[in-house]
C-alpha cells in the first residue's frame, strides 16, 4: 500500500463516520488550483468542508498536523467551490476529522475560522 491508497482508506472510514453523525455527503475530493477538499457535506443548515487527517502513530493529534498554510489553502479552495457553484448566503463550517490507526475517529467541528 502506498500513501495515496492509505489516505483513501482513511477517508472512506471518515465518510462512514460522519454519515453516522447525520451529515449528508455532497462531494468527495474536490480539486482545484487553489487546493483540495477531502469531503464536502451538509450538516443541518451548515455546508461543511471536512479535512481528514490520518496518522499511523498513536500520539499525533489531528489538529496538530494542520498549520496555517494548510488552513489558508483549504479556505481558498472553499471560496473557489462557493464561487464556482454560485453559493451565497450559506452558513459554512470547517470540520477536521482525525484518524489514528486502530482508534475511533475524532471529530472537531468549527475547527478553524478565517483570519482576515
Amino acid at each position: 500500500m502506498n500513501n495515496r491508497t492509505k489516505g483513501t482508506k482513511y477517508e472512506d472510514m471518515v465518510v462512514q463516520f460522519v454519515l453516522k453523525k447525520g451529515y449528508r455527503i455532497i462531494e468527495r475530493n474536490f480539486y482545484s488550483k487553489a487546493g483540495e477538499i477531502d469531503i464536502i457535506a451538509k450538516d443541518g443548515k451548515y455546508l461543511v468542508f471536512i479535512e481528514v487527517r490520518s496518522s499511523e502513530k498513536s500520539f499525533v493529534h489531528p489538529l496538530e498536523s494542520i498549520n496555517k498554510t494548510k488552513i489558508n489553502r483549504i479556505i481558498k479552495s472553499a471560496r473557489f467551490y462557493l464561487y464556482t457553484h454560485n453559493i451565497k448566503a450559506q452558513f459554512i463550517r470547517f470540520d477536521v476529522v482525525g484518524v489514528i490507526k486502530g482508534k475511533e475517529p475524532i471529530l472537531i467541528k468549527d475547527a478553524f475560522q478565517s483570519v482576515f
Partner: peptide, 9 residues
C-alpha cells in the same frame, strides 16, 4: 453577523 466563511474581524 452573516452566513459565509466563518470569521470575526
Amino acid at each position: 453577523s452573516v452566513p459565509g466563511i466563518p470569521g470575526f474581524s
